Simulated assay, not measured.
Amino acid sequence: MNRLHIVFGSLMGLALAGCGPLQAPLPARLDDGQQKAVNESWEQTLSPVDRFSKQSLLDFLLLTNTYQFGVDKLEFRSEKSFSGGVVVMEVRFDRSSPERDLFTVTVQDRPGKVLRQERYGREQIERSYSELHIEAGVIRHKRDQGIASPEELRKLEAYEARHALVNSVLPAPPEDKGKKPHDQRPKK
């Protein structure tokens, strides 16, 4: 059991370093050292394949996020009905082909006719995530300290306008009790 705690600890450290469960619509790409640690942990966990109980295997997956963290391939599909039909969101990730990482949003009418389809690659997703979550927060902090440049303040105004548009249509996601909210949108 001690070895399992070492595996959990190693992967939890990596997971808590900012690679939590799908904070953006593609899983994080790991550097070589992180990927090696994940691979070695899987080898230890599954050698032999029945080494841990059903519950321990589930605990491993939940505590380390390895159902999406450091995987070789990941496909995810979700659907949400609305009055005009359904929106289908699909994530495709292949560690060996980073150029193929894709998040697709398809809006269909009730019979299934495609009304709109948008495709987002990793670069656009990571840039947008960085702008809305990281850069906006950094500039907001600099603004509050009185050290933000005029250019940074213009960027912040644009980022906050993007947040305001989202806030005007969608509610903030529910917060987990005892955890910090992931939503970095400014409060109204």
Rank of each mutant, 00 (worst) to 15 (best):
M1Q: 14
N2S: 15
R3S: 14
H5K: 15
V7M: 06
V7Q: 03
F8I: 13
F8Y: 11
S10A: 09
M12F: 02
M12E: 06
G13I: 02
G13F: 00
L14S: 00
A15T: 06
A15K: 04
L16H: 10
P21G: 11
P21T: 10
L22S: 05
P25N: 01
L26P: 01
L26M: 04
L26V: 07
P27Y: 00
A28K: 02
A28L: 04
A28D: 07
D32R: 01
D32K: 03
G33A: 01
Q34S: 04
Q35C: 00
Q35D: 00
Q35F: 01
A37H: 02
A37Q: 11
N39V: 07
E40G: 00
E40F: 05
S41D: 00
S41W: 03
W42I: 06
W42T: 03
E43Q: 09
E43K: 07
E43Y: 04
V49P: 09
F52A: 03
S53E: 02
K54N: 13
K54F: 15
K54D: 13
Q55H: 12
S56Q: 15
L57E: 01
L57K: 05
L58I: 13
L58M: 10
L58F: 08
D59P: 08
F60T: 02
F60Y: 11
F60C: 03
T64D: 02
N65M: 10
T66H: 04
Y67L: 14
F69K: 07
E75I: 13
E75D: 12
K80G: 15
F82C: 14
G85T: 06
V87S: 09
E90A: 13
R92M: 10
F93A: 02
S96Y: 05
R100G: 07
L102T: 01
L102A: 08
T104S: 13
V105M: 14
V105Y: 06
T106M: 10
V107A: 14
V107C: 12
P111L: 00
P111G: 00
L115M: 14
L115G: 03
R116D: 09
R116K: 11
E118T: 13
R119F: 11
R119K: 15
Y120K: 07
I125R: 08
E126T: 11
E126N: 11
Y129Q: 13
S130L: 12
E131F: 12
L132H: 05
L132W: 07
H133N: 15
I134G: 03
A136N: 05
A136M: 08
I139K: 05
R140P: 04
K142T: 04
K142I: 02
K142E: 06
D144H: 06
I147L: 04
S149Y: 06
P150S: 03
P150Q: 05
L153K: 05
R154A: 08
R154Y: 12
E157G: 08
A158W: 09
A158P: 11
A161V: 08
R162G: 12
R162H: 12
R162C: 13
H163W: 14
A164F: 09
A164Q: 10
V166F: 10
V166M: 13
S168L: 03
S168Y: 01
L170F: 11
E175W: 05
D176C: 14
D176T: 14
K177D: 10
K177G: 10
G178A: 01
P181C: 02
H182A: 13
H182F: 14
P186E: 04
K187E: 09
K188L: 10
